[in-house]
């Protein structure tokens, strides 16, 4: 979305895109076809299976080029236009080629107050790209996203539609980038609520080793 003096301008998508995959590559293996057929069976109408099938395709092809969306629509058995509408509705479906790791930095209200923009700008400077861009080595893409529903552990980011990284600080961002450069995805962590710790007699969750204790989020530098 380009910002200009006249408000936001929504761009027209490329209506005649160049193919990104060869014809030989643009197929599902029989195993994948079987999985998609399984999705279709789960629902009353094939429409229901489109989201799972698109997800499968995104994992296989990396991003949803219109040709890929067409392929998925044909496989699921729904119109191409409908599949395209679904794919463009959700930001988690990547319509353009991305880096290996997509860093979705939350700058929605809570994170913003707690330093979301500080983290976003630090990340942009560190990787020398702007949001929406991909590093030259093809490793990282930075996206600014709206609320990911983890306000309690703000500021936070999500890695490639996968694990959340909470309680972000500059040091933590450095460590994350280093780890990702070495191919190590952060592990899943969840944040325990204060009442788990204090009022109910310690952390009673069954997955204690994957939890991190709640702590009061910081205040953004700009706010201070």
């Amino acid at each position: 979305m380009a910002e200009s003096g006249h408000g936001k301008v929504v761009k027209l998508p490329d209506r005649d895109p160049k193919p990104a995959f060869s014809k030989e590559d643009l197929v599902f293996a029989s195993e994948e076809k079987k999985r998609i057929a399984g999705f279709v069976e789960e629902y009353e109408k094939p429409d229901g299976a489109i989201m799972k099938a698109l997800w499968l395709a995104q994992e296989k092809f990396g991003f949803l080029h219109p040709d890929v969306i067409q392929l998925v629509a044909d496989e699921v058995g729904i119109p191409y236009a409908q599949a395209y509408g679904v794919a463009t509705f959700y930001t988690q479906y990547y319509k353009n080629k991305t880096g290996k790791y997509v860093l979705d930095v939350c700058t929605c209200f809570s994170c913003q107050v707690c330093g979301g923009y500080d983290i976003l700008h630090y990340l942009e400077e560190k990787l020398e790209i702007h949001k929406g861009e991909t590093t030259d080595d093809g490793l990282f893409t930075i996206q600014e996203v709206e609320c990911l529903g983890a306000c309690g552990s703000a500021p936070m980011l999500q890695v490639t539609n996968g694990p959340y990284v909470h309680h972000l600080t500059r040091e933590k961002v450095d460590a994350l980038v280093d780890a990702l450069q070495n191919g190590q995805m952060p592990s899943f962590t969840s944040i325990t609520l204060p009442q788990d710790e204090d009022e109910m007699g310690g952390n009673r969750r069954t997955d204690v080793d994957k939890t991190e204790a709640y702590r009061t989020p910081p205040v953004a530098e700009t706010v201070e």
Partner: peptide, 20 residues
């Protein structure tokens, strides 16, 4: 089935999918 609403929120409008 040639038209669909693309995008979301304030950014959506009817469109044909690419290549059609």
């Amino acid at each position: 089935h040639q038209l669909t609403i693309i995008e979301r929120g304030v950014r959506n409008y009817p469109m044909t999918p690419p290549g059609t």
